[in-house]
Computed example of a mutant assay.
Amino acid sequence: MTGIAKTPEPPYYAVIFASERTEGEKGYGIMADEMVELASAQKGFLGIESARDKDLGITISYWDSLESIKIWKEHSAHRAAQHKGKTEWYQKFSLRVCKVERHSFFEM
Rank of each mutant, 00 (worst) to 15 (best):
S68T: 05
A51S: 05
T59A: 15
S50Q: 15
E20F: 02
E9L: 03
R21V: 14
T2G: 08
I30D: 10
K86T: 06
I4D: 07
G57P: 12
K6H: 12
V15T: 13
K92Y: 10
F106Y: 15
S68Q: 04
K70P: 02
E37P: 00
K86L: 15
S68N: 06
K6S: 12
W72E: 01
I16E: 04
S76Y: 05
W63L: 02
P10V: 07
K26A: 15
A14F: 11
S76M: 03
T22H: 04
M108K: 11
G24N: 07
K92F: 08
K54D: 08
M1W: 05
A81V: 04
E9F: 00
S61N: 04
L56A: 07
A14C: 11
H75W: 15
G24P: 08
K43P: 15
E37I: 00
K99E: 15
L95S: 15
F106D: 04
A41H: 01
D64L: 03
K73V: 12
H78R: 09
H103R: 14
S50Y: 05
Q42C: 11
L46V: 08
V36L: 12
K26Y: 14
L56D: 01
E9N: 03
S50N: 14
A32Y: 08
W89N: 04
G85C: 05
S76C: 01
A51R: 01
V36R: 13
E101S: 10
G24Y: 11
S94V: 10
